[in-house]
Design a protein around this nucleic acid. Structure first.
Length: 399
DNA sequence: CGGTGCGGGACAA
DNA sequence: TTGTCCCGCACCG
């Protein structure tokens, strides 16, 4: 009882993070049937948030989460409940050479998790310790999934009281030994997707999640190096396939100067049909940028950007950048019937772009209207913060 | 082998 | 009765 009232209070308090203007609970008999906006998949949902995803969203279909969540029976076949397993840390609290800590992903399978804890820290050889999640009144944080018609309703209860583990993808990549680690920013997005497929980057994005992350954790997550040709095609595809939800994690401009810059950007979407396999597509991609959180308001970031772009002649600063959504599978998971136009809009603090579906190969062209020659085609990686520039020759990492 | 979902059972309020 | 967690099972890749 105590927990219920606590939940309710928290949910009210955190209503700002809920799906826009919608007040509902996963247990409601009737859920909103015509939500104004659907959400982009959030890999790191935390606190008492709710999201409404499209039933075509693959990540939502799979009930994926960055957190290690295991199934929990709630004796309700309509609502899938999952609880957090915490994070696996080194008992020596060791630090990797670049200052990062070890935060491994607990195995979902009980046996595997037990076995995992008997293994040694990959860094110092010390023993591993499981920090269990007690973020929901002493119990693990729980996630709820409910499929209703064209929507997948998601709700989380509790606040994770432990660092973020590796994502599933990172964990798998580490196990296969094909991963090269550098620094990367993990994020939750402030993206909203309306029913007609319009994408908007909201000022009120989910950056709270980032700020709540333990210090240094954002630098723990890996960055995939697609120049690593040993990387298995499937793993590589997965990285690319899931790339949108993590990508455009920049704050929209809060200041009119930046808005002006944005308004100079002309966006258009170009679709290409490509029957080639994904790997071959990847080979035509020029990896140009990663690991950055595009905070347009952040002076440091801009300084960094300038330095970065100056060093990288093939790279253009954000103001000139184009976003491309590569659909290596259907990364957008957009409902083709809902999407018909490609006109971008600048509305208030929102930079919006309409994306065309039919997306077996969607490519977003963005050009600066003041400089038509700077038009370019880019791909955006979903799960990692990548921006890819199409290049018929080859790709090369710039970091 | 491990991730995932289902469902039985136990327990507490 | 209801809600929760633990556990084992089956299925699948």
């Amino acid at each position: 009882m105590l927990r219920i009232s606590f939940d309710t209070a928290m949910e009210r308090e955190c209503s700002g993070t809920e799906s826009k203007g919608i007040n509902w609970d996963i247990n409601d008999m009737k859920l909103p049937q015509d939500p104004e906006n659907m959400d982009w998949f959030q890999e790191w949902p935390d606190s008492y948030v709710k999201h409404i995803y499209s039933s075509t969203d693959r990540n939502a279909q799979r009930h994926l989460s960055g957190w290690a969540m295991r199934n929990t029976n709630n004796h309700n076949s309509r609502i899938l409940k999952k609880s957090c397993l915490g994070v696996l840390v080194c008992s020596n609290d060791c630090t990797v050479s670049d200052g990062r800590k070890i935060y491994l992903r607990p195995a979902i399978c009980d046996k595997a998790r037990q076995k995992q804890q008997s293994k040694r820290c990959p860094n110092c050889g010390g023993s591993l310790k499981l920090i269990s999640c007690r973020g929901h009144g002493g119990f693990p944080v729980t996630n709820f999934w409910r499929h209703e018609g064209p929507f997948i309703y998601f709700q989380t209860k509790g606040v994770h009281d432990h660092p973020k583990p590796e994502t599933k993808l990172e964990s798998e990549s580490r196990k296969t030994g094909h991963k090269k680690r550098t620094a990367v920013v993990s994020s939750s997005l402030g993206l909203k997707r309306s029913r007609n497929g319009q994408v908007s980057i909201e000022e009120n994005s989910d950056l709270d999640n980032i700020s709540c992350m333990p210090l240094g954790q954002e630098s723990l997550l890996p960055l995939y190096d697609f120049n690593d040709m040993d990387m298995e095609p499937s793993a590589r595809d997965n990285v690319l396939n899931n790339c949108f939800s993590q990508t455009k994690c920049y704050n929209s401009a809060k200041d009119s100067d930046h808005l002006q810059n944005l308004s100079d950007i002309e966006l258009s979407v170009n679709l290409q049909k490509d029957n080639q396999n994904d790997s071959s597509k990847i080979n035509g991609v020029d990896f140009i940028s990663s690991t950055m959180e595009f905070d347009i308001d952040n002076e440091d970031q801009q300084t960094w950007n300038r330095a970065f772009f100056a060093k990288s002649p093939n790279v253009q600063p954000l103001e000139n950048l184009s976003w491309e959504k590569s659909t290596l599978h259907n990364f957008l998971d957009l409902n083709s019937q809902q999407i018909s136009n490609t006109q971008p809009t600048i509305r208030g603090n929102l930079l919006s772009l309409n994306l065309v579906d039919d997306v077996h190969q969607g490519i977003l062209h963005v050009s600066n209207s003041n400089n038509a020659s700077s038009a370019a085609v880019y791909r955006i990686c979903q799960e990692e913060s990548y921006l890819f520039r199409c290049n018929p020759s080859h790709f090369s990492p710039i970091l």
